Lab assay of single mutants.
Amino acid sequence: AEIMKKTDFDKVASEYTKIGTISTTGEMSPLDAREDLIKKADEKGADVVVLTSGQTENKIHGTADIYKKK
């Protein structure tokens, strides 16, 4: 799966169907969080990951919607 910015995804959204939401939390780098989200998306058969939230304090927390091409 590839990560797309919401603004970029909005241009092609009609080509995809939302298949779920994924999240990651833990003591990790932003890059590790990104890789974890991609891994989870791949496991669910998603083609595209669109980040919906991200937070960093002591731990990273990120959520994303996942989509499959129609």
Rank of each mutant, 00 (worst) to 15 (best):
L37P: 00
P30M: 12
S53M: 14
G45S: 05
G26R: 09
E27Q: 12
K40V: 05
A64K: 02
A41T: 02
S53Y: 14
A64H: 09
L31M: 11
E43A: 13
T17N: 08
G26M: 12
N58F: 10
T56I: 11
A41S: 03
E57W: 09
V48L: 08
I22F: 04
A1N: 01
S14Q: 08
K44C: 15
D36N: 08
G54N: 12
E43I: 08
E57A: 12
G45I: 02
A46L: 01
K11M: 08
E27G: 13
G26C: 14
E27R: 11
E27V: 12
G20R: 02
K18C: 10
G54C: 15
D36I: 09
G62C: 15
I38D: 01
N58Y: 10
K59G: 13
G20Y: 03
E27A: 13
L31N: 12
Y67P: 01
G45D: 05
S23H: 12
I38T: 03
S23N: 08
T24V: 11
K39Q: 07
I19F: 04
G54D: 14
T25W: 11
S53H: 13
I19M: 07
K6E: 08
I66Y: 02
N58T: 11
D42G: 12
K44P: 01
A41W: 00
N58L: 12
T21A: 06
A33L: 10
V50I: 08
T7Y: 09
G26V: 13
V49A: 04
K59D: 14
T17C: 15
L37R: 00
K6W: 10
K39P: 02
K6Q: 13
A1C: 12
T7C: 13
T56M: 12
S53N: 11
K39S: 07
A33K: 05
V49F: 02
D47N: 07
Q55T: 10
T24P: 04
E57Q: 10
K44W: 14
I66S: 00
V50K: 00
I60Y: 12
M4Y: 05
E43G: 05
D8P: 03
V50H: 00
L51R: 02
E35P: 03
K44D: 03
L31E: 15
D8S: 04
T63K: 08
K69S: 05
I38V: 08
T21R: 06
T25G: 11
T21Y: 05
K44L: 15
D36W: 15
Y16G: 00
S53P: 08
S14C: 15
T63C: 09
Y16R: 00
K39Y: 05
A33V: 09
M4A: 01
K39T: 06
A1F: 03
E15T: 07
Q55C: 14
E2R: 15
E35R: 15
T56A: 11
K44R: 14
V49S: 00
T7P: 08
I60M: 13
I60W: 14
T25M: 10
D10F: 06
L51S: 02
D65I: 08
K40G: 01
E27I: 12
K6H: 07
R34Q: 08
V49K: 00
K68H: 04
T25H: 12
L37K: 00
T24N: 05
E43P: 00
D8M: 05
M4W: 11
S14T: 10
T17M: 11
G62F: 15
A41Y: 00
D32C: 13
Y16M: 00
Q55A: 12
A13R: 13
V48F: 02
K40M: 09
A33S: 07
G62K: 11
K18W: 15
T52V: 10
K69M: 06
E2M: 15
K68W: 04
T24F: 13
E15R: 11
K68E: 04
A13E: 06
V50T: 02
I22Q: 01
A1R: 02
I22S: 02
V12T: 03
K39E: 04
I22N: 00
E35F: 11
K18H: 15
I3S: 02
D32L: 14
K59M: 14
D32F: 08
K69Q: 04
I38A: 04
T17G: 03
L51A: 01
K6N: 05
L31S: 14
M4E: 02
V49N: 02
M28Y: 05
D36G: 05
V12M: 05
A46T: 00
D47C: 09
K6D: 07
I66D: 00
I66R: 02
A64Y: 15
T17D: 09
T24D: 03
Y67F: 07
A64E: 03
T24I: 15
T52Y: 08
K44Y: 13
E35W: 13
E15Y: 13
S14I: 07
S53R: 07
E43W: 06
L31Y: 10
K11L: 09
A46S: 03
T7W: 10
K5H: 12
G20T: 03
K40I: 09
V49G: 02
D8L: 05
K59T: 13
D10A: 09
A46M: 02
V49L: 13
T24H: 04
I60D: 08
T52D: 09
A64P: 01
A13L: 04
D32Y: 07
N58C: 12
T17P: 00
A33T: 07
S23P: 05
A46D: 03
S53T: 10
H61I: 15
I66A: 03
V12A: 03
K18P: 04
K70S: 06
T52I: 10
E43N: 06
G20E: 03
K68T: 05
D10M: 11
K44F: 14
I3C: 06
G54R: 08
K11P: 06
K44G: 04
G54L: 15
D42N: 15
A13S: 11
F9M: 03
I38Q: 06
G62R: 15
I66P: 02
T17L: 11
I19Q: 02
V12D: 03
S29G: 09
A33D: 03
D32K: 11
Y67Q: 00
I60S: 11
F9S: 01
D47I: 04
